[in-house]
Design a protein around this nucleic acid. Structure first.
Length: 284
DNA sequence: AACCCCTTCAACCGCGGCGTC
DNA sequence: GGACGCCGCGGTTGAAGGGGT
């Protein structure tokens, strides 16, 4: 069948954007708002394809973008989110206001990957790189907190969210004794990771069909559906909190019958269980 | 100064998801 | 249910800049 090209390639500019093109794009979006990327170039008098305009706006021209270096806190948040979500850069970006998926992706590939490798951590699996193949992944040790010993006999549940990287899965200990939990609470600050992701700013474009359809698809992707109108603190399971409530990982049913840990004990980032125990390693 | 290599990051490309007809 | 169109995502590319020799 074949997909029709998004634009007349013969009549579009490619490559770096000029100041004039930027000004045109910004001016148009300020006046008319985002959306309808396919028709935008023509309307704005730009010899660019819609995708190019969208990318330029989202990654560079948006007024709410945070320019400059990533902070240490952002670094750590990206690492944690990547350990959970894999290469879902848009989801990760949704947790970092002012940062774009492209920016985070680039930053990951250029800085964080190397940083993790220097720490002896596989950036794909987020596990300690260990030369001994007999070592079980869940027995990775945290030299500062000696977690492995306290978790040794606890049953584990494996949750995998990263389809693109099938090897990425994270073992989350669902039951941790109070002392261990306290230790991790001290190590990791509380993170509000409730997924309530929205575009940086909404324009009046809600009545635009294409715009509203795409944003609604984002909502489906990112927000728990109605039957789950609860936040983490009110009993939503981890899978549901990530918008995958119908997956096999959904534990809402087990939560309801009381067989799983209480929501207040839920270990969102595996922090309490030491999944992210690389964090305690020396940062360099 | 010239060259080479490495790093960074803006931009492109192809594909999948979703809505509409 | 399938074809089609659009949007957004993730992977990749390549130009630009910086550092080393």
């Amino acid at each position: 069948m074949g997909r029709s090209p998004c634009c007349e390639k013969a009549h579009t500019n490619k490559g770096a954007w000029t100041k004039e093109e930027d000004d045109r794009l910004v001016g148009y979006i300020k006046t008319h708002g985002e959306g309808c990327w396919r028709s935008l170039p023509k309307a704005a008098g730009l010899l660019r394809c819609g995708k190019s305009c969208r990318l330029r706006w989202i990654n560079y021209l948006r007024p709410d973008l945070k320019r400059g270096n990533f902070t240490e806190e952002e670094d750590e948040l990206i690492i944690k989110l990547h350990s959970l979500l894999g290469n879902k850069w848009s989801l990760i970006a949704g947790r970092l206001p002012g940062r774009t998926d492209n920016e985070i992706k680039n930053y990951w590939n250029t800085h964080i990957r190397r940083k993790l490798l220097n720490r002896g951590i596989d950036p794909t699996t987020h596990r300690i790189v260990n030369n001994n193949p007999n070592d079980h992944p869940t027995t990775t040790t945290n030299k500062n907190n000696n977690i492995s010993s306290s978790l040794g006999d606890v049953a584990t549940t494996t949750i995998s969210f990263a389809n693109a990287t099938p090897t990425t899965h994270h073992v989350i200990k669902e039951e941790v004794d109070a002392d261990t939990r306290h230790n991790f609470d001290n190590i990791l600050p509380d993170l509000n990771l409730e997924l309530r992701i929205s575009p940086p700013h909404h324009h009046v474009h809600q009545n635009n069909s294409s715009s509203s359809s795409s944003s609604s698809s984002n909502i489906h992707q990112l927000q728990p559906k109605n039957h789950q109108h609860q936040s983490l603190k009110t009993g939503l399971c981890f899978a549901c909190s990530l918008g995958v409530e119908n997956s096999k990982e959904c534990s809402c049913s087990t939560s309801l019958n009381g067989t799983s840990s209480s929501s207040s004990d839920y270990d969102f980032l595996g922090s309490k269980a030491g999944v992210l125990d690389f964090r305690s390693q020396e940062m360099k």
